[in-house]
Write a protein that binds this DNA or RNA. Structure first.
Lengths: 349, 349
DNA sequence: TATTAGCACTCATCATCTGAGAGTGCTAAT
DNA sequence: ATTAGCACTCTCAGATGATGAGTGCTAATA
């Protein structure tokens, strides 16, 4: 049962009005503000039908109508028109991101900050999942007699390291040897692959001292690989939601904040979402039943996929927010394109 | 004008009761619950005097009394008795910290988690300020033709690195040479020293290619040193405060949360506090006028000083919280004592 | 002199009530 | 098919009054 042109217009008007004012919309105000050429009574009848079809709800008899999740979904899928970013916002994004372009994590954090500043909602940004990153080389370095640094470098140039203490001293030569040994062994393999398919124990055992050293290093190696898999999550603007009428009750606000206190859970959730701009509305989210969640993905070196997102009430300016996120992720992907040498890696300052 | 023994008893009783129930305390309930051997009327008179002296306040005529900041200060300084941790809490702390002892940052985060769990307040923990850390060595490593890794290792074994791209290719030998060169130059100097006293430009200029490379590396070197100075701040249990009656108003809750959204500002504030267990109450804090803040410091390798802290309403169980923090920081300092080789640096798992 | 009982008084809180206003839903006219 | 008219419903804000906790003062008491 498709909606008539007029019904769509009315629904659109109600959504626009409700998103703006956060108050149930009455037939009279629609008739007055939006020039639909019909009387409030007609609009009332249509509203009644729309409610029957599940697009509107009714807080109580004598209140106006409020759009349902279904209405927002329809809006996002068909009604919504693409919005152009204001020149001001574009400038803001360009300026702020370029200032930190060569520092990966800082840039990601700035993206989250920008997103919450421009949208006035809660936002997050996370570094890419690195399951498919491949190992480039492994290096062991002496610090003190029994202290060494273990360093793993991935193909995309990201580095993770750990400092570890050995039960017995070791020589610089044996560290060098084991470094080469491990590099040969693991170079080109993905983190997931190495972590899942356990450790191969058959290399280097011809020299006993080396085998012992290897035994001491392996647990740290594995743990460091796990560290490498961790994505960093930056959250910003959580307090913005306090300014919204839907969170004026302390309980609502608490529920909201508590969701984000569980960072690990949240990260997993976000990683699982599809790439590209994805909008989920109200009940479509498992938790967050009265929130909408918009995520978008950016690319690093054209491959790795990181995510940014915005969380707010279902009453949200979907058109604006999606546009901002599209612009922002394009900008990020552009920043993180490593194919040619135009970026020197150190800033001008 | 000193307080009489009886006045102290009454004040103590009021504080105990108010901390427990968060409601203004009346003379009758004091007389009933705490066996002071005097009638409500006498207590009323004393309360009136205490109010005149600024130890109590009066929300309105017919309400009971509430302790003022001054009262809490007196309590913390003289009245409070040291509390023993419950065996349960001790076990919790021992178990949870030992599980992550060899991973520095993780341990710090766990400390913050523990603190908020046990106190049911908001907590934070931060890694030590590293101004006085000295540089141990600097290493440059090739990744690809024009991509290299810059790595700085401090005396205490902490490592910071950055990946940078050069405008022109460089040889492994020149990287090696510059590494040595820089290490000789900076070894033993503190981060602060190096950052403040600008860069010495007179070394290695005898080889032109090396000087050029050095010019390309220095900006990243400085930035990486700055990174090294950054302390990590972990905040936990922010949502705990929603359960407290003093934050049942959305405005209060918002103010509270907004303070902690400014992480940099907060970090600076906390770094500036004295070492040891420090309690500041209400107005004694610049911002946070109706909060109390308790911080304590732990030591790494007996030298570097990190901080943990708890933030809550002035109505707080000062005795319990300070005890917990003392126990926790002792435990942390113990964990981070690096003097002998008993710790292998890699876990048993 | 210090303490206490007694009592009038104050004030917040809660439940109840009221009128105003917004908005609907239905019916009958256009 | 649309619209005007009107009764009806329900929320909201303000007013009212009862309740009860707790004080502050006074006069009696040990």
């Amino acid at each position: 049962m498709d909606l008539s042109e007029r019904q769509l217009q009315i629904l659109q008007a109600i959504i626009t009005d409700y998103v703006e004012n956060a108050e149930p919309v009455g037939s009279r105000s629609i008739a007055k503000k939006y020039d639909l050429g019909v009387s409030p009574a007609t609009i009332r009848n249509e509203m009644s039908d729309l409610e029957e079809m599940g697009y509107l709800t009714h807080p109580h008899t004598s209140a106006g109508r409020v759009p349902s999740d279904k209405a927002y979904r329809l809006y996002v899928n068909s009604l919504m028109k693409k919005k152009n970013l204001s020149a001001k916002d574009k400038k803001l994004i360009n300026d702020r991101l370029s200032a930190s372009r060569d520092e990966f994590d800082r840039t990601i954090r700035h993206a989250a900050e920008l997103l919450s500043e421009i949208t006035n909602l809660a936002s997050f940004a996370m570094t890419p999942a690195t399951n498919d990153e491949t190992i480039s080389f492994i290096r062991l370095m002496p610090v003190e007699e029994k202290t060494i640094i273990l360093m793993i470098v991935s193909e995309s140039g990201s580095v993770t390291n750990t400092t570890l203490r050995l039960p017995v001293p070791c020589t610089a030569e044996s560290l060098e040897l084991l470094s080469k040994n491990m590099t040969v062994n693991y170079r080109g393999r993905t983190l997931d692959d190495v972590l899942k398919n356990e450790i191969i124990e058959d290399v280097g055992s011809d020299i006993e001292a080396l085998a012992a050293l290897r035994g001491n290093v392996m647990p740290s190696f594995i743990r460091t690989l796990e560290d490498m898999l961790n994505v960093n999550l930056y959250m910003e603007g959580m307090t913005n939601i306090f300014n919204l009428p839907e969170y004026s009750s302390i309980d609502r606000a608490r529920d909201f904040m508590e969701l984000f206190a569980q960072k690990d859970w949240f990260t997993q959730k976000m990683l699982a979402r599809d790439d590209g701009v994805v909008v989920t509305i109200g009940e479509e989210n498992d938790s967050l039943k009265d929130c909408s969640l918009i995520t978008a993905s950016y690319h690093v070196d054209g491959r790795l996929v990181g995510k940014i997102g915005v969380i707010g009430p279902t009453r949200m300016k979907y058109d604006e927010v999606t546009s901002i996120m599209e612009y922002l992720t394009n900008n990020l992907s552009e920043s993180f394109r490593l194919t040619d040498g135009s970026e020197t890696g150190d800033g001008s300052g």
